[in-house]
Structure formats: C-alpha cells, structure tokens
Simulated scan of single mutants.
Amino acid sequence: MSQNSSSPSLSRLSALIGPVVVTLSLVGLAYVFGGVPLQKVLYVYQRSRLHWPDFDRLAHASVAVHIHLGVACLAILLGALQFALPKGTGLHRVVGYFWLGLMWVAAISSFFLRSINHGQFSLIHLFSVLTIVMVPRIIWLARVGRIAAHRKTALSLYFGGLVVAGGLAFLPGRLMWSVFFN
C-alpha cells in the first residue's frame, strides 16, 4: 500500500526531471556560446554587492523593457497562483488563458531587446521562440484531454521561460543586474 501512495509523488518528480535537464543544458549553452566565460561571470559575482534597487535605471529603459518586465513579473505571480488553484475549473481556465497571454507578450516583446549581443538576437531568444511554440501547445493538450502532458508543458514553460530566462536577466552587464548589484 505504501508503494502505491509514493508512486504519484515519484511520478511528479520524474515529470520534472526532463525539463530541468533541458533547462540546465540551455543555461550551459548560453554560457558557452554567449561569449562570456563562466570564470568571468563567477569573478564578477564574487566582487559584487547587493544594494537597494536603483529604479532610475529602469526609468530610463525603453518601452520594450517596461512591457517585457511588467508582463514577465505578472506572469511569475499569476503562474504561482495557478499552481495553487484547483485544476480543471473555470477559474483555472481563465487564469490559464491570461497567463498564456502574458507569456506570449513577454516572448514577443523580448525580440525588441537585443542589447546584449550588439543589436543581434542572442541565445536567450531561444526561450522566446520556445514560448511562442509552447503556448498554443499547452492549450491544445488541455483541449484534447492530455492533462499530464498539459501540466508538464505548462510547468516547463513556467520554469524555463520565467525562472531560468529571468535568472539570466541577472547576469553581470544586464539591466536587471545593474538595478540590484554594483
């Protein structure tokens, strides 16, 4: 009996392993192909100090940055709320559609943010392409009743598109880095 009761949690854990491996691989590729050696990044982190946020840096940012940052922050909060809500309800659907819309706007707006690669697209834009593909897939998976795949894809999008890509925004030299670190 205890073996059956631990099976669902083991199933949930194994469902997250794939997205975590893919996410870590993408982060590794960003370091390798991003033109910044990992040793340099670690050196800068060791020498940096956290300070009170300098919102003046954001005030002088472009409209695309404001849109991207605003919808990404809302998507983080709404996605966390979605995890806590009961699944399969009308509220879950409404919040889900709104969250997916925010994710899509964040992905589209990211194509206007190209300062880290001399005006060109960078590897972080792969998250944006992946988001644009995954948003309709998440809807389709729910509509055809493939709920486990729907859940796994939505979790992957949340962690890959918001947590990891958002974490990459805090690399040295990026705007969010300068807002919080010196």
Rank of each mutant, 00 (worst) to 15 (best):
S2Y: 10
S2G: 15
N4A: 15
S6R: 15
S7M: 13
V21H: 05
T23P: 01
L26Y: 06
G28K: 04
V36N: 11
Q39M: 12
V41G: 06
V41Y: 04
Y43A: 15
Y43D: 15
V44W: 00
Q46K: 12
S48H: 02
S48P: 02
R49G: 13
R49E: 14
D54K: 12
F55I: 13
F55V: 14
F55R: 06
L58Q: 08
A59D: 07
V63D: 13
A64M: 04
H66I: 01
L74Q: 04
I76F: 14
L77W: 12
G79S: 09
P86M: 10
G88L: 01
T89Q: 06
G90C: 03
V95S: 11
G96E: 08
G96A: 08
Y97W: 03
G101Y: 03
M103D: 05
M103Q: 13
V105H: 02
A106T: 05
A107Y: 06
S109G: 06
S109K: 03
F112Q: 12
N117T: 13
Q120N: 15
Q120T: 08
I124Q: 04
I124K: 00
V133Q: 04
V135E: 01
P136A: 08
I139V: 15
W140F: 11
R146D: 06
I147Y: 10
A148T: 12
A149D: 15
R151L: 05
K152F: 04
L155G: 02
L155Q: 04
S156G: 15
Y158A: 09
G160W: 03
V164C: 14
G167H: 01
L171F: 11
L171C: 00
R174F: 03
L175M: 11
L175D: 02
V179L: 07
